[in-house]
Amino acid sequence: MSKLTGRDPSLLRRINSTVVLRALRGTTAPAALTLTELVRATELSRPTVEGVVEDLIEAGLVAEAADAAARPGGTARRGRPARSFRFRAEAGQLLGLEIGPHRVAAVLSDLTGRLTGSLTREVDETAEAEARLERIRGTVAELLRRTGTARDALRAVGVGTPGIVEADGTVRLGTALPGWTGLALGERLRRSFRCPVLVENDANAAVLAEHWKGAARGVDDVVMVLAGLSPGAGSLIGGRLHRGFGGAAGEIGALHLLGREVTPERLLSTTDEPLHPLDEAAVARVFAEARVGDGRARRAMDRFLARLVHDVAALVLALDPELLVVGGWASGLDGVLDPLRAELERYCLRPPRVVLSRLGDTAVATGALRVALDHTESELFTVEGAGTAG
Rank of each mutant, 00 (worst) to 15 (best):
Leu267Gly: 11
Glu210Trp: 03
Ala216His: 14
Leu208Asn: 01
Glu210Asp: 07
Gly259Asp: 12
Val223Ser: 09
Ala215Val: 07
Gly259Met: 07
Gly238Lys: 12
His242Arg: 15
Gly244Thr: 08
Ala205Asn: 05
Ala249Tyr: 01
Val222Cys: 14
Arg260Ser: 13
Arg243Asn: 05
Ala227Ile: 02
Ala248Leu: 08
Val225Pro: 13
Val222Pro: 07
Ser230Tyr: 15
Arg243Gly: 06
Leu229Val: 10
Gly244Arg: 14
Gly250Asp: 00
His211Met: 12
Leu255Tyr: 15
Gly246Val: 05
Gly259Thr: 11
Gly239Asp: 08
Arg243Asp: 06
Val222Phe: 13
Gly234Asn: 11
Val219Gly: 01
Gly253Tyr: 08
Arg266Asp: 09
Gly228Asp: 01
Ala216Glu: 14
Gly244Asp: 06
Leu258Met: 06
Glu261Met: 01
Gly239Pro: 05
Gly247Ala: 13
Gly244Met: 07
Ala215Asn: 11
Lys213Trp: 07
Asn204Leu: 02
Arg260Gln: 12
Gly246Trp: 05
Leu208Ser: 00
Trp212Glu: 04
Val222Trp: 14
Leu255Phe: 15
Gly253Cys: 03
Thr263His: 06
Met224Asp: 12
Val222Thr: 11
Asn204Gln: 02
Leu258Phe: 11
Gly247Lys: 11
Leu258Asn: 01
Ala206Leu: 00
Ala209Thr: 05
Ala254Asn: 03
Ser230Lys: 09
Ala206Gln: 00
